[in-house]
């Protein structure tokens, strides 16, 4: 979807390919540490989340603890479909059929995370083994002529689509807003009462973590000020870049995991409360 007229195929960098290289064959890993541990742990972590997400999204039930308080599972927010509880339904209710509401909305946060620069690193490493760890050969790269002997990175379809991450970010800001709304809503107990339950706290933390993750996004960092050539000419954007977004960005990995885990936890908590398995202690 290049919007600039492309030019002819570029001239190559003059370098002789295929000369002998030193050291043992590339397939031999000389690292002595447990280099495989991290990619494995990450793969397991991601797989666990995806597993949980599928279960929760297809469940299509127990995502709103409305009988007790306005706890709407973040997997199901915003709730668009006919089956949504009237208390929390958005838009022209009932216009959309009766699929699980989660399936409709999850595309956006999923797309945001799948194209996130940090998650790209994790799944390229853990699932695609490209590379599995630093100084460890890409899977299949040592087999000449094999299916994976060549590598084009993010230059071709489909991976070139990673470049649309920015659009997911715009939507993600909307979602962060919605989850913030849900957190406020989580203070509502009964038809018109206000209160504070243990779950309310979980919702507030959830919204906070989502914001920390969303504002620490690299696209956000670029848009808020990183794209400038001279910071001194835009002091406000610079302050946002320096004081807010860059520090969050430095911990993007941390917030990526915390927010991921916390969404699942909040959802599970709503499930437990709404299915009656536990009782949400009301603190105030």
């Amino acid at each position: 979807m290049s919007v600039v007229e492309g030019t002819a195929r570029p001239a190559p960098i003059p370098v002789e390919i295929g000369r002998a290289r030193g050291g043992p064959p590339r397939s031999k890993v000389l690292r002595r540490d447990l280099w495989w541990l991290q990619p494995l742990a990450i793969a397991l972590g991601l797989a666990a989340f995806v597993g949980y997400g599928v279960w929760t999204a297809f469940r299509g039930d127990y995502y709103f603890a409305g009988a007790h308080a306005h706890y709407l599972s973040p997997f199901y927010s915003p709730c668009f479909v006919r089956s949504c509880p009237t208390d929390v339904v958005w838009g022209p209710a009932g216009s959309i059929g009766s699929v699980s509401p989660a399936l409709l909305v999850l595309i956006f946060p999923m797309g945001f995370r799948v194209t996130c620069y940090y998650y790209r690193k994790t799944y390229y490493r853990s699932f695609w083994a490209s590379p599995p760890a630093c100084a460890v050969a890409d899977a299949g790269s040592t087999k000449p002529g094999g299916a994976r002997s060549r590598y084009s990175g993010e230059t071709r379809f489909p991976l070139i689509l990673q470049n649309i991450h920015r659009y997911f970010w715009y939507v993600a800001v909307l979602f962060a807003g919605i989850l913030t709304w849900d957190a406020i809503d989580a203070f509502r107990f009964g038809p018109n009462g206000w209160g504070l339950g243990l779950g309310t706290i979980f919702f507030v933390v959830n919204a906070g973590l989502i914001w920390a993750y969303t504002l620490g996004c690299h696209a956000c960092r670029h848009l808020c000020g990183g794209g400038l050539k001279r910071f001194s000419q835009a002091p406000v954007r610079f302050a946002i870049w320096r004081k807010v977004v860059s520090p969050l960005n430095a911990h993007h990995q941390l917030f990526a995991w915390l927010s991921l885990f916390w969404i699942a936890w909040t959802d599970f908590y709503v499930y437990l409360v709404s299915s009656g398995a536990i009782h949400d202690p009301r603190l105030f």
Binding site: Y124, A135, Y151
Partner: peptide
Amino acid sequence: PLDTLDRRAYIAERMGLGYCNITKC
């Protein structure tokens, strides 16, 4: 801050920016 060229297309096409899959090694 003083530079005047715009190398973006060059970086994408000739310098192969898209090959990097940001795996951070």
